[in-house]
Design a binder for these strands. Structure first.
Length: 285
DNA sequence: GCTTACCTGTCG
DNA sequence: CGACAGGTAAGC
């Protein structure tokens, strides 16, 4: 479900809600939800821990505790739900796919629900373990640790890569997913199968700008709700109304051409065939 | 690289 | 009924 903007919207909402709260005993309904350590150790060690802040790297939500870090990856359909029982605002529908409940010592709780069960949580001891166990294949966060020079250097090392698979590679840069990658390339007028080596310097710099801009726009509009995405208080995103190509096969582009759907790297991919020209490569393609 | 696997639901 | 879904890891 979520890409960087959705996780960031959740982070901004969740941080003031749970900062300073202390976890009581969690209740785990689906053992596979916990990636590290084992289920029993996870619940034992989370109990009694106090939330210091909620952070993020790429698509990982990082809940810093007075001792250790709770990391969450929502994958496709994961949802974090904040519930305050003195207000009772969360609709029962949100609890259909409940996998883990993490109550606080007051009358509130953080729940994890996940229809497809792909999402995972980790509880690690410190930054070192976070880096080696959770974030070992995660590159710089696009909106945090990535200046233009760094981005251009990284592109230089991946000259032969095609744009869409590269942007989706979290080790290259962290945060882009299927929706925002398509939107980004559409805005740049670049075809997803284009190779890095064919870009001009100006196009590379524009790619850097748009990679960041499309994510910032997504955050500004509260994320994209295509199906399951909700913020931690159950709100829907609004960026879906501002998408240029994603999910819009058959619609008209500004230029008057029909938006098409193709497959790139096994992912459904939306393009304007007029604004994003198919690259013509010689030989074996 | 590509394919498969992990899961469950929805849409055509 | 098959195809597909916002993600990633593993195995050719």
């Amino acid at each position: 479900m979520p890409e960087l903007p959705e996780v960031e919207v959740i982070r901004r909402e969740l941080d003031p809600l749970i900062r300073g709260k202390t976890f009581s005993k969690p209740c785990l309904y689906v053992a596979s939800t916990i990636a590290h350590p084992c289920a029993e150790e996870f619940t034992n060690r989370l109990q009694g821990r106090m939330v210091k802040k909620v952070d993020r790297k790429g698509k990982y939500l990082l809940i810093y505790l007075d001792c250790g870090i709770l990391a969450v990856h929502l994958r496709m359909t994961g949802n974090l739900i904040y519930a305050d029982y003195s207000e009772d605002t969360v609709p029962a529908e949100e609890y259909r796919f409940l996998r883990l409940s993490m109550p606080f010592t007051d009358q509130s709780a953080l729940h994890y629900s996940d229809m497809r069960r792909f999402g995972r949580l980790w509880l690690v001891e410190d930054e070192d373990q976070l880096a080696s166990v959770v974030l070992k294949n995660v590159g710089p966060d696009i909106l945090k640790g990535l200046c233009c020079e760094n981005f251009l250097m990284r592109l230089e090392k991946r000259k032969n890569a095609r744009l869409k698979p590269l942007l989706l590679d979290q080790k290259f840069v962290a945060g882009m997913g299927n929706i925002y990658t398509d939107e980004c390339l559409y805005r740049c007028g670049l075809h997803p199968l284009q190779k890095v080596s064919d870009l001009s310097n100006a196009e590379k710099e524009e790619l850097y700008r748009q990679v960041r801009q499309v994510l910032e726009d997504g955050i500004e509009y509260g994320g994209t709700t295509f199906r399951d995405y909700r913020t931690s208080s159950g709100a829907l995103g609004d960026f879906q109304s501002r998408l240029g190509v994603y999910g819009r096969k058959g619609d008209l582009c500004r230029c008057g051409a029909w938006i098409e759907k193709i497959t790139v790297g096994g992912r459904g991919t939306y393009i304007c065939p007029c604004c994003q020209k198919q690259p013509q490569y010689e030989g074996k393609e």
